[in-house]
């Protein structure tokens, strides 16, 4: 693969031109979009979304789905915030408790979906409701006053980057390495394309998605803890509400198919960036509330349209440069 941007890659990632166009548009209309402060702000805000969207994307690629992440996020935030505010918990214990809460939700989801074999849509819709209730029952009132140790999780700078961004980068790198460099990465795709064929090929068709449920739960709880640390407060009723839809939107706009078996991490990261920039830009421009909703909806439809066009554009881009070099050896995609 070449390092320069060629038409084929642009066609594979239709969000790139969209994001560039949005950035130019917002910069021209506000004059403050491209400021390093603002860009860093977008990155920090988007970090929690990325931390959850990445493992969720792997789960969707393997043919499953986790809708409970919004509530797991709240549970993770409540767990960490409760320990920090009520018991003076330090960074490590707070994060640990939060991760445990997330792993527990992931284990329930994974057990019901992968071992028992229930529909992930229904199971995680159920845990979405139930886990929110747990979080609210556990901490009905807002939690505040976390102490400095826990504040470090969301407020520290590592090499000039805010810690949430650094954690998000780590998550992306680890997931990217698993997908690209390990046999398990191929198993994730294989299960998503055909669970039956994967099973007959000896792939661990229960263990792999189960582990992805665990990872998604843990990452959702961690994201909640990070956001709690950034805010210095947790409201169990509103924390992460609607987050599951934002995650799913980022994953799908990023080109991961809900049917499983296809999608790339680059696409997911672009999907996260797309949502973050859109949100930031519309606020910068000062678009009224309901028009923001209209604009967000339209932007999603445009992104979906481009995702639809992408394979066709890619095919076009693939034909032109190769027609000159290759003749018959490349198989043309069959239509059946």
């Amino acid at each position: 693969m070449s390092t320069t941007v060629n038409p084929r890659q642009l066609a594979r990632y239709p969000l790139i031109p969209v994001i560039v166009a949005m950035a130019i548009g917002f910069e021209l209309s506000t004059g403050s979009f491209m400021g390093s402060q603002n860009l860093l702000g977008i990155a920090t805000d988007s970090a929690t979304l990325a931390i959850v969207a990445v493992p969720s994307a792997l789960l969707v690629i393997s043919g499953y789905l986790d809708l409970s992440v919004g509530s797991t996020y709240a549970l993770g935030a409540v767990a960490a915030g409760w320990l920090a505010s009520e018991h003076g918990g330090g960074l490590l214990t707070c994060v640990l408790l939060s991760l445990l809460a997330g792993l527990a939700v992931g284990a329930v989801n994974g057990f019901l979906c992968c071992v028992v074999g229930l529909s992930p849509f229904i199971v995680t819709l159920g845990t979405l409701t139930a886990v929110r209730g747990l979080a609210q029952q556990f901490a009905p009132l807002p939690l505040t006053s976390f102490g400095d140790s826990f504040a470090w999780l969301g407020g520290a700078k590592v090499a000039g980057l805010p810690s949430p961004v650094v954690i998000a980068l780590l998550v992306v790198l680890v997931a990217g390495a698993i997908l690209a460099l390990t046999p398990v990465g191929r198993h994730i795709y294989a299960i998503g394309v055909s669970r039956e064929a994967a099973y007959l090929s000896g792939v661990r068709v229960r263990t792999v998605p189960f582990t992805l449920f665990l990872a998604t739960g843990a990452c959702a709880a961690l994201a909640g803890a990070i956001k709690a640390s950034v805010l210095g407060a947790v409201q169990s009723g509103t924390a992460g509400s609607g987050f599951e839809l934002a995650v799913l939107t980022a994953v799908l706009v990023g080109g991961v198919a809900l049917t499983g078996g296809s999608g790339t991490l680059v696409g997911v990261v672009l999907g996260v960036a797309f949502l973050g920039i859109l949100q930031n830009g519309l606020t910068l421009v000062g678009v009224p509330t309901f028009w923001q909703q209209v604009a967000q909806g339209l932007a999603l439809v445009v992104a979906a349209g481009l995702a639809y066009l992408a394979p066709r554009l890619e095919a076009l881009a693939a034909v032109r440069p190769q027609a000159a070099r290759r003749t018959t050896s490349e198989p043309t995609p069959a239509t059946t």
Binding site: T30, G31, S32, F33, G35, Q37, N38, G41, D45, K227, V230, L231, A233, Q235, T238, A239, G240, S241, Q279, N280, G281, T283, L284, G286, P288, T289, Q292
Partner: peptide, 23 residues
């Protein structure tokens, strides 16, 4: 008046206010 944004929870308010502050 430099901003009038929908936000009832701290999370959303943080994001929106940061965007307003950028400008």
């Amino acid at each position: 008046v430099v901003g009038r944004e929908q936000a009832i929870d701290p999370d959303t308010a943080l994001t929106k206010t940061k965007a307003i502050l950028a400008k």
